[in-house]
Each structure stands twice: as C-alpha cells, then as structure tokens.
Simulated assay, not measured.
Amino acid sequence: MNSNDKKMPRRVAPARSAHMVEAIFGCKWSLTVYQLLKNGTKRPGEMVRSVDGLTTKVLNDCLRRNLEFGILERKAFNEVPPRVEYAVTPMGEKFIQVLDALEALQDEINASSAEADPR
C-alpha cells in the first residue's frame, strides 16, 4: 500500500440508535403499540383492551421506554377524570420506517430461505 493511499477507518455501529433498536425489539409489545397508534388508538386503557395478553404494567413500561427514546410523546389533558394520549413523534416516524425496512429485509431472507430449502 502506498503511503499516499488513504486508509478507511473502521466503521462502528451508532451506539444510541443501535441501543434503541435492541430495546424496542427486546420489548415484544412495542411493535404492537406502534400498530395501535397507527390505527388511531391513543389512550392506554384502549390499548390494553384492544390486545389480548397486554397488561397495564407492561404497557406502561413499554410506553415509558419509547418516551425516553423520543419515539412517542405523551399528552396529558387537564380534565377530570384525567386523560392521557400518546402519539408518534416525527423522529419516531423515521425510526418506525427503519423497523419496517428491517421487517421487509427479514421477509426477503425468509423467502429466499424457503426457496433454497423447499421441504
């Protein structure tokens, strides 16, 4: 190699976004929550009633994690009884597009695996 040739630096995974993907896929309910929000379900009580097996505690943990990452935003209304709604942030929209792309990639991998091994 010539001394004039430039070496390419080693590429490192982006720490925060990689952690986000890992944490979101680690929570089996996050993708379901995104689907509920996409379908217009915004209140936690509605979410729990809409999905078998989803508990309030698990939902709150999932929502809290998504709030910390900035994927979701929480809006509290000054009403009696209290009302809280969740929505996807603009950054969350971008993040969900990445997750959708990963899902599409997995579908392609599954399809090519099925073609290669037709049992």
Rank of each mutant, 00 (worst) to 15 (best):
C62E: 00
E46L: 08
G45I: 08
K38M: 08
A18I: 00
Y34T: 03
N39S: 12
C27E: 09
D61K: 14
R83L: 09
K75Y: 07
Y34K: 04
K75V: 11
K57D: 13
H19D: 10
E79G: 02
M20H: 14
I71S: 08
S17F: 09
P81N: 10
H19E: 12
E22C: 11
Y34D: 06
N66D: 11
V80R: 14
E46D: 15
N39G: 02
E46N: 05
G53L: 01
M47A: 09
R64V: 04
H19C: 10
M20N: 11
F77V: 02
L54S: 06
L67E: 12
P81S: 12
N60D: 14
L67C: 08
Q35M: 12
Y34I: 01
V51D: 06
V21I: 15
V58I: 14
P82F: 01
C62V: 01
F77C: 00
G26E: 05
L37G: 06
P44T: 03
K75T: 14
S17G: 00
C27M: 12
S50M: 13
G70D: 04
I71K: 07
N60H: 15
F77E: 09
L31C: 04
T56I: 09
V58S: 15
G70T: 00
W29P: 03
L31K: 11
L37R: 07
P81L: 11
N66V: 02
F77D: 03
K28H: 11
C62Y: 00
R64G: 03
K57S: 15
N78F: 04
F25L: 15
T56G: 05
L67W: 09
G45M: 08
S30Y: 04
E46C: 05
T41N: 08
L36K: 01
K38W: 10
G45C: 07
G70M: 02
K57A: 15
C62I: 01
Q35I: 07
D61Q: 14
K57H: 14
C27I: 05
R74K: 12
R43C: 10
R83W: 00
E73P: 02
W29D: 10
R74S: 03
E73Q: 13
V33S: 08
L59I: 04
L72W: 06
R49C: 13
K57I: 14
E73A: 13
T32M: 07
D61M: 12
W29K: 03
R74M: 05
N66W: 01
T55I: 03
N66C: 08
F77R: 09
D61G: 12
S17V: 15
L37W: 04
S50R: 15
V80C: 10
T55M: 00
F69T: 01
F69P: 00
